[in-house]
Computed example of a mutant assay.
Amino acid sequence: MAARHLVEVKGFQERRVCRLLNLARSNLRYQPKQDESEEQNLTEQLKTFAKNPRKRRQGYRLVHQEINKERIKEGKNPLNHKRIYRLWRSVGLTVTARRKRKRIRSGKPATDLVADRLH
């Protein structure tokens, strides 16, 4: 971030830099809380669910439920569905589309019931 660089390297005052860039000072001091190893573990879990032939048709909603079941059994807190969806998109997973079945029609033409009643 440019503001952090100006403060730490160039020695400018934090208040002045934030005022000039129209930033809140809390944004400059923000430290993300997420652990990257947990994110990697979750993406690996999502990939294994997507590759499993029995669960291939599951979207992120059902995978979210499965992951939360496992986490609750382990004594961990459940995850937010929006976080799962964000990871699902970042990995590039999609649900395989179902093939449409061909409709088998009988050889008889459909009778026009309204025309038959009028005659």
Rank of each mutant, 00 (worst) to 15 (best):
R98M: 08
P109A: 12
P32L: 03
L20C: 06
Q45E: 14
A50T: 08
I104T: 13
L28G: 07
T94E: 13
V9N: 04
V9A: 08
E14N: 05
V63G: 03
A110M: 04
E44K: 09
V95P: 05
R83I: 14
G92D: 07
L6T: 01
V7G: 03
G92F: 03
L62M: 04
L46Q: 14
R98T: 13
N52H: 09
R16Q: 07
G107E: 14
H81G: 11
G75H: 06
Q58G: 07
R16M: 05
V114E: 06
K55E: 15
H5W: 00
D35Q: 13
I84N: 09
R16G: 01
L21A: 14
R19D: 05
N68D: 13
Q34A: 13
R57S: 14
K69M: 04
L62K: 10
P53A: 02
T111C: 01
D116L: 09
L21N: 01
Q65V: 12
Q65C: 08
G92T: 10
L118A: 02
Y85K: 12
L46K: 13
P32F: 02
R25E: 11
P109C: 05
K33P: 05
T111S: 04
L118S: 08
K73P: 04
S90F: 04
R89D: 09
K55H: 12
Q31E: 09
R117D: 02
L62C: 00
N27T: 11
R29N: 09
G75R: 06
E8Y: 08
R25G: 06
R101P: 00
T96R: 11
L87T: 03
P53Q: 02
V114T: 11
K82Q: 11
R56F: 01
K51Q: 06
N77V: 11
A50W: 01
F12S: 00
N22E: 07
L113S: 05
R117E: 08
A97K: 15
R16W: 07
